[in-house]
């Protein structure tokens, strides 16, 4: 009974602030919501957030492709291929260290490093590519680590079953092992994506900001993102700017919710035949 109460209280501590946050943003954003926020660019203190919405989507897509590929492959490498004959755990500890160091690293410092090395050093200026590289650097270890641990949790009996049928290791990995690790992998990638979508500091240093819509240019072209407006417009004196700040927050929350829902859908679709879902 005491345990139950404690659990409920603990759950309250987790869910409470999240609900408070979501409800607070919705309550402040919805009353003045205009759909043209999505289709106009900022103008003075007003206008819309089309540039930032598209910019954030482009950044998330870029991180998905870049960090998703690198991170998942690295995770597979550490869980499956770097595993030596003698059941050791080579690599996994260095991965853990890398991931802990990088996640403990203030993101603004990474942003600054990106600014000095990429924007200035390589003369790329404020632009998409340095932003993607820095955000990916932040989340690749996270994705790799969650992929690795998801793969390690795949029951030995699946691998043995595949071995006993004479499946090649790579084939078994693709057809049996990864499939059963999919929820963990997908969840890791999506959390990484929402981290990337929610970052401000490293983007301030690498992406810059602009009122124009994203172009196809990878370098020499600043790109906008929602978190910039959440922050700056909140600190503006005008009510119009405040409203935009809440609109940006609302759009971000909706994006994250869409991510979470798609994660559930993917997990559901890949786990239709899983042992836990009977």
């Amino acid at each position: 009974m005491a345990f139950r109460t404690a659990s409920v209280v603990a759950l309250g501590f987790v869910v409470g602030p999240a609900l408070w946050l979501i409800v607070g943003v919705i309550a402040r954003a919805v009353p003045h919501w205009r759909w043209n926020v999505l289709t106009t660019v900022p103008l003075g203190n007003g206008g819309g957030l089309e540039n930032a919405l598209l910019g954030t989507l482009v950044i998330m897509a870029g991180v998905l492709v870049l960090a998703g590929t690198v991170g998942v492959l690295a995770g597979i490498h550490f869980a499956e291929l770097a595993r030596p004959k003698r059941n050791g755990r080579a690599g996994s500890s260095s991965l853990r260290v890398a991931s802990e160091v990088l996640s403990g690293f203030p993101s603004i410092v990474l942003g600054y490093v990106g600014y000095v090395a990429l924007c200035v050093g390589l003369h790329w200026g404020f632009s998409l590519l340095p932003a993607l590289l820095i955000l990916s650097l932040m989340v690749v270890p996270y994705i790799a680590k969650s992929t690795e641990s998801a793969l390690r949790q795949v029951p030995t009996s699946y691998r043995e079953g595949a071995d006993a049928l004479g499946m090649a290791t790579g084939y078994a990995l693709r057809k049996v092992v990864i499939r059963s690790a999919m929820p963990g992998i997908v969840t890791g990638v999506l959390i990484a994506l929402s981290i990337a979508g929610g970052e401000t500091a490293p983007l301030l240093y690498t992406a810059g900001i602009t009122n124009s819509l994203p172009s196809s240019a990878l370098v020499h072209q600043p790109i906008a993102y929602l978190t910039y407006y959440v922050w700056t417009d909140y600190n503006q004196p005008s009510a119009q700017a405040h409203n935009l700040s809440y609109d940006a927050a609302l759009i971000l929350i909706v994006l994250v919710l869409i991510l979470l829902v798609s994660a559930r859908v993917i997990v559901y679709r890949t786990q239709r035949h899983s042992e836990s879902r009977r």
Partner: peptide, 16 residues
């Protein structure tokens, strides 16, 4: 392994 098949103590169907 294809020619010498194996059946385990606990049934281990794949998650498919």
């Amino acid at each position: 392994r294809r020619r010498v098949g194996m059946l385990f103590q606990r049934p281990n169907p794949f998650p498919m």
